Amino acid sequence: MTDLATSDSAAARRALALLDLTDLAEDATEAGARDLCAKALSGPVPVAAVCLWPRFVPGARAALPPGGPVRIATVVNFPGGETAIAPVLQETEAALADGADEIDLVLPWHAVLSGYTTAAAAMVRTVKLRCGEKLLKVILETGEYPDLDKVRIASELAIAEGADFIKTSTGKTAHSASLPAVRTMLGAIASAKRPVGLKPSGGIRTLADAQSYLALADAFMGPDWASPATFRFGASGLYGALTAVIEGGAARPGTESY
Rank of each mutant, 00 (worst) to 15 (best):
A251Q: 06
S42C: 10
V124E: 09
G202D: 02
L4H: 14
A25K: 14
M221P: 04
R205C: 10
L52K: 11
D147P: 01
S114L: 10
V50M: 10
A210S: 10
A158G: 13
A5W: 12
A229S: 11
T206W: 08
A17E: 03
T243D: 04
E102M: 00
A235K: 01
I139S: 01
I153F: 12
E102G: 01
I159A: 04
E82K: 13
P180H: 06
S257A: 15
P79D: 05
D20K: 00
E141L: 08
G59V: 15
A217R: 02
K167H: 07
D8F: 11
P195I: 05
L107I: 03
A122E: 09
L21K: 04
D35Q: 13
E30H: 15
V45N: 11
G115A: 06
V57S: 08
T168S: 03
G234D: 05
G143R: 05
A97M: 08
A62V: 10
Y258F: 13
T118E: 14
F78K: 04
A5S: 12
K199W: 02
G203M: 08
Y145L: 10
A210W: 10
A62H: 13
M123P: 08
K128H: 09
G222F: 00
R34I: 14
L36T: 09
A229R: 11
A31E: 15
L64C: 15
S114P: 05
T243L: 03
A97Q: 09
V88L: 07
R152V: 14
A160P: 08
T2D: 15
L113G: 04
T92L: 11
N77R: 08
P180Q: 07
I103D: 06
R183F: 00
D98M: 14
A86D: 12
G80L: 15
K134T: 11
I72A: 02
S201M: 03
L96Q: 12
L89Q: 09
K150G: 02
P69S: 12
G99S: 07
A158W: 13
A63W: 13
E82Q: 13
F220D: 01
A241T: 04
Y145G: 04
L238M: 10
V138K: 00
A215T: 03
R183E: 01
A251L: 09
L4M: 15
G248A: 08
G171M: 08
T2M: 15
S169W: 00
D8T: 06
D218V: 00
M1A: 15
G132M: 04
